[in-house]
Amino acid sequence: MNKRLLLLLAFASPLWAGEPQNTAPEWTAEAWHETLRNMPYGNAARGAQLAKEGYCYTCHGDRGYAPSRNAPSLAGQNQAYLYKTMLDFASKRWWADHKDDVMHNAAITFTKQDYADMAAYYAQQPKPFFKRVEKPNHVADQLARRGDHTRLLTPCSSCHGVRGEGGVNETPMISGQSAFYIKRQLEMYKSGKRRNDVEEGMRFVAEQLTDEEIEALAQYYGNGQK
């Protein structure tokens, strides 16, 4: 038996098998644009009531301003992204680990109209305050504004906006989130556990980032929340 296998046996703690697998088909651009065209018109007032009934504020905070590093802020988030997120949790297209179980269970109790209404409500809230870093980390700043042509990495800002405020279609606001959350998502894309991105767009990027670059980007876009 080789050492690597022994190490695995010792530390992987295979306490239980049979973990659920993410088997939902991935997004093609065509399927996503078709879905977006059919997205119901969102009623923000109804969305506010639904968000209350769903106890969304327990993790995402009052009006979607996350109270801790542990969940993303939804206030001012891209409406299409919010709608898509609920579809993806319901279908388990976004199922990276058991952290996502509560969102899956919540999502399956709502309808697509409900998703659109809640998305409209949260998207209407002012974005969280984003303080620009005075002396940004050079590595992160380069990746954010210029990308890296040697690795075919487009700059983050070309999709997520100059200040990470979110872009067209489904590209989300990232700058209002905690560094802790951003890092976790980049790691999930990098490991392939999160796979609800359209045409593997984020996975292509994250797979090429080093751990140091992920940390630097998380600090660069993070809101300073610990």
Binding site: G54, D101, A106
Partner: peptide, 26 residues
């Protein structure tokens, strides 16, 4: 009878079962 809350509690119940088990044996 809030269906959202009851479904969320199931996720939390399972979370608890796994985490509790890990807290003792892992």
């Amino acid at each position: 009878l809030n269906p959202h809350l009851n479904a969320e509690r199931v996720a939390i119940a399972r979370n608890w079962q796994r985490t509790f088990r890990r807290d003792i044996f892992e």
